[in-house]
Amino acid sequence: MKEFDYLAPESVSEVVSVISEHGDRAKLLAGGTDIIVQLREGLREADVVVDIKKIDEVTSFKYSEEHGLSLGAAVACYHLYEHPKLSQLYGALADSTHIIGGWQIQSRASVGGNLCNASPAADSIPSLIALNATAVIAGPNGGRTVAVQDFCTGPGRNVLENGELLVSIQVPAQCNNSGSAYERFIPRNEMDIAVVGVGSWVRLSEDGTIAEARISLGAVAATPLFAEEASASLTGKHPSEENFAAAGELAKQIATPISDMRGTDEYRAHLVGVLVKRTLTTAAERAQN
């Protein structure tokens, strides 16, 4: 690995000032499971690596029924699936964080890092989009928020500008009749990159019909997608296999997958239909329980 300096500031404002000064030559370090590999393999370079794990608001999380989940950008994956309440409230996030890498990776990798790394196949991003999460950003001109569905701008690229960092992710509070799920297809059981990943969220009305649904697709475009039309199509419908399959057909229409060693574009489009149906089914079951 090429030489760099290491800094571990204790406040967001210090980080903003360091990364404003160094621009692209400064790299943030949260769990390190992407950036350390990228620095070692020469995919990215840095003069200074800024460890953000000494900052309380970046490393902590809290949930309230009023404000929902505020998830610090550097909170490691395991917190989400080991936490009894959060894993129940945010099923899609528990599903995805439990299959990002293996156990060792989940001890360090963060949802915030997964988002900033902006891989089209990132497992946690479709979950965040389905849950209608918002990125909370700090920068030299103050703070701003961006919907997670608008955060990624291309493979490995995001909306963060010079001097900005992701501080936390805000996920709306969940009610008793909402549920969510994430599923990906990979040729083995674990430790692989999604051929297709789908996150779904539903909220049911008292009469058992769908009040609102959100579907998000991963690995079928340059960025994870919000399947707006497919989601809206479910409003007022019964959570039936037929309606979920129809939503899957609509979701397929926005998928523009590539063909590569993991699968052809045709195969990926087919998987979108299958996984939309499956994740909606699980999300609805979780909403009913």
Binding site: G32, I36, R40, D51, W103, Q104, S107, R108, M191
Partner: peptide, 27 residues
């Protein structure tokens, strides 16, 4: 592998298993 895939470098860090190739000594 030195890139977080193989786990041959697994150690416990504050009670959690991690790949020590993906942790900086300074951390």
């Amino acid at each position: 592998c030195n890139n977080g895939n193989c786990g041959a470098c697994t150690v416990m860090l504050n009670g959690r298993p991690v790949d020590s190739c993906l942790v900086l000594g300074a951390e």
